[in-house]
């Protein structure tokens, strides 16, 4: 099945989704890789400059360009999600994340957290950086750019019809990756 969502998406909608479904999302997403996960887990969630629970989490270290009009996305495909496996269950719980976008899949800890907190992990085509950049309408803000550098900073993207995102781990305990490995 194919679905088109405006973010944020409630648990009822997430529950309808199953492995193999394809979704397109419109709204705000934020990028976070290893360093940003690490940093955000140490921060007080009430003092964060943005609300992650209203956005999708995107495993991405984009290539950005600063112009007169502000930041522009040059290329922004997903990064390898398995690196974030060591943080993700805690991250999902702390920030109320229910849509993760990445590539390559995640492990058992994340699967369990997605099941417990009604979330999904979706796969975006790895390396499709130019295509992804085309779906970003605006870059409203960036956080911790000086400390973390361009790839590791947290970028907020306003996206339109971002996808196709393949539901690869659903909230019912199924994972495409686990099933293929078997």
């Amino acid at each position: 099945m194919e679905y088109h969502f405006k973010l944020p998406v409630d648990s009822g909608e997430i529950e309808k989704l199953h492995v193999g479904d394809v979704i397109y999302i419109t709204g705000k997403i934020f990028t976070a890789r290893d360093e940003a996960h690490h940093m955000m887990l140490e921060k007080d969630k009430n003092n964060l400059p943005f609300d992650p629970s209203e956005m999708a989490l995107y495993h991405c270290g984009p290539l950005m360009k600063k112009t007169d009009k502000g930041w522009q996305v040059v290329s922004a495909g997903p990064t390898t999600s398995s690196r974030m496996e060591i943080f993700e269950d805690e991250f999902i719980e702390k920030y109320g994340i229910n849509i993760i976008i990445g590539k390559g899949g995640m492990g058992e800890r994340t699967e369990k957290a997605l099941q417990k907190h009604t979330g999904i992990y979706t796969a975006y085509t790895g390396g499709a950086g130019a295509l992804a950049a085309d779906k970003v309408e605006e870059v409203p803000s960036v956080y911790w750019l000086d400390e973390l550098g361009m790839p590791e900073a947290v970028w907020i993207f306003k996206v339109k019809e971002f996808g196709p995102l393949v539901v690869a781990i659903d909230s019912h305990g199924r994972s495409i990756y686990r099933e293929i490995k078997r």
Binding site: G61, L63, V74, T125, G127, A128, G129, A130, P151
Partner: peptide, 19 residues
Amino acid sequence: AILKNIDLAKKSGRPMCQD
């Protein structure tokens, strides 16, 4: 998606992958 991306990168002169 990969083929579309390759095409778009070439036409727009942008790196095909952010990495």
